[in-house]
Amino acid sequence: MNLWKRLMCTARRKSPWLFHMNSGSCNGCDIEIIAALSPRYDAEQLGVLLQGSPRHADILVVTGPVTNKAVNAVKTVYDQVCGPKAVVAIGSCPATTNVFIDSRTLDGPLDKHLPVDVYVPGCPPRPDAIIAGVVKAAVLLAERGSDAPQPTVAIATAEEVQP
């Protein structure tokens, strides 16, 4: 039993599948996420795969300051991701609503609606920082296991990535 748990822990750490959710982002962070998967940064060597369906994902990657229109979509997609799951907020917008703060078209930041596990600050963040954030979320998933609803918040920056 213990062996199975350790195996599952390793598997969760080594196979983070992402679902990318845009909640009204300017597309800057989205481009950086794609860059993280491209040949130069190649997140697949860490087992990261961008999935088409939220049902397949472990980690929900959210960009954008959560506009009024996007609130329900963000909540629905979060519920569609099957547990154990984690949320990574990419960029300054989902963390603080950034330059759009106090806008009447926003209902952010993201942690008003979802339990965010890892923040990747930056406008936009570098691809290395995004990869560091995803890996941090995968480690959180592995440590947390199937039964621990309380999220632990972490911040990932580009400086953590070994050159």
Binding site: L7, M8, T10, A11, R12, K14, S15, W17, P39, D42, E44, Q45, G47, R55, D58, Q80, C82, G83, P84, S146
Partner: peptide, 22 residues
Amino acid sequence: RVGPPFMQPFWDFTKLLGKSTP
């Protein structure tokens, strides 16, 4: 690209076994 490590499909399979279903 470098590509996934050798054990990747096995890890993917194991991880999926441990996930919940709707």
